[in-house]
Design a protein around this nucleic acid. Structure first.
Lengths: 264, 264
DNA sequence: CGGGGGGTTGATCTCCTTCAATCAACGTGG
DNA sequence: CCACGTTGATTGAAGGAGATCAACCCCCCG
């Protein structure tokens, strides 16, 4: 699937401080790398303790499907490290990505029995899962969880609407530039770096996944990436390693205001 | 703007039981036509009373902009009757609709100071507004409000993601069919009718608004509507009055499973 | 009567898709 | 160790769906 050797293994989320064999060490919420951003971010110590009781970790390998659309879901959870995609597929095989799940993002919908989308790990991934029924109970009793989840859902809704503009109105070149700038910015926040020097990152998606995200074909994605490279908007080393010499230039190409956030 | 005489005035939401001059009569939550679906749907009597204290009604005329993107928002609220659109605009004027607000839908985002989108009334519209600061206070104290808002936001997120598939992967004909089937279904639920007889409704949007929703030009919208009419998928009387003789046929054209909901 | 908003239809153009060949990197089994 | 298949990616040529530009219609209204 995803050639790991191309990628910085710790680029997309602080790596759990354990090797692959000792998930057990990950049991303590205190040490959790996403504790300040996940659903549990607002919880008090006693609330965290209740969560600890219904939680467990699961690992997935790059390429593995975490959930199939239509499956019964008996858990919800947070991405701890790694990246996953949310996709919808039509009967004839056309697919559209509808979400990109990064560390701290929430998976599953309380109150719904079956999954509405396919969830696929695009890198090796660790999830912190909560059994669904007890989690729902806890949500009623613990406003902090529901509050945080509301906040996160509103953010996702904004992201989805932003994406609707990309899908509906932008050209192929603008779409690619938009995707690159989103990934670049998210990566910058994740690593607490500034956005005015040159940004460097590895693409977490194949050309095909990018196409599914952008409503394009993979050929068009490839062509537009080549074009942006030719025009010096991006620098490519290999297929995945990207340098953005001038972020505001990229934002220009994306058709966004170059002054930073769209929801400024 | 919207020629009112073309439209059944009570089609999009139970009309408040008052004429245009006596909004005052709308003061009681008990009589509210959307009380079972709006943010306040879960509230107990005493909670409703607290809401009553910070609420007020506002009327907007067809075509009027309710909120400009970027404006400070000092209220949130629910659409009581009428229809509004949520749109995003790029610097060069390209616009994309990102939401269609029907009666009981929520407007505004608690926790955010400025509006992220333009909100425009496409028909005459009544909103039940809450002053933002007190509403946010109430949300913390009253889990019932936050719970309901979470539920509604999750639904909107699903709708947005469904729309991403439409925008990213469907053909113009499928897009039109998708829009028609959504409007038809929402109308059916609103009027508690069944979905197996022929469905009849008036389009609440101009061709241009439909184009903005679907990521098309208005010419393409017009052509595809003509095509669906020619092919007998829909029957048109005038420009706005639509009859769907066979809903499953329309669903077929939309590329959706004809067995009803996508999130079945 | 003229004018404007909403809508339809036609002709042309273009951006993206489709189909296809090719390549590089990698893994595998003989 | 090399031939082979596979996967991800690039590039080219041809075609088509939808955009663009433009003319025109209908209806209402001042």
């Amino acid at each position: 699937m995803l050639g790991e050797r191309d990628l910085d293994p710790d680029q997309y989320g602080t790596m759990p401080m354990v090797n692959k064999r000792s998930l057990a060490v990950l049991q303590e919420c205190e040490d959790c790398p996403i504790k300040h951003r996940a659903v549990c971010a607002r919880c008090e110590d006693d609330e965290l303790q209740q969560l600890e009781e219904i939680k467990y970790y699961r690992k997935f390998e790059a390429g593995q499907t975490i959930i199939w659309s239509g499956d019964r879901m008996d858990f919800v959870g947070s991405v701890v490290s790694g990246i996953a995609t949310l996709t919808q597929t039509m009967e004839d095989g056309r697919t559209q990505m509808v979400g990109l799940l990064l560390p701290s993002d929430f998976v599953g919908r309380p109150g719904r029995g079956a999954a509405a989308y396919d969830v696929v790990a695009t890198t090796d991934l660790v999830m912190c899962c909560f059994r669904k029924a007890p989690f729902e109970d806890l949500m009623v009793k613990t406003p902090h969880i529901a509050q945080r989840l509301l906040e996160m859902t509103l953010d996702e809704l904004d992201a989805a609407r932003e994406w609707m503009l990309v899908l509906g109105r932008k050209t192929a070149r603008e779409k690619i530039a938009s995707l690159l700038s989103i990934i670049a910015r998210r990566n910058a926040t994740l690593h607490l770096s500034t956005t005015d020097g040159p940004l460097v990152f590895d693409l977490p998606l194949t050309r095909e996944a990018m196409a599914d995200y952008l409503g394009l074909t993979l050929e068009t994605v490839s062509r537009q990436i080549s074009a942006l490279k030719r025009d010096g908007v991006i620098v490519l080393e290999g297929k995945r390693h990207v340098t953005i010499p001038d972020m505001s230039r990229l934002m220009d190409e994306a058709g966004d205001d170059a002054d930073g956030g769209v929801f400024a």
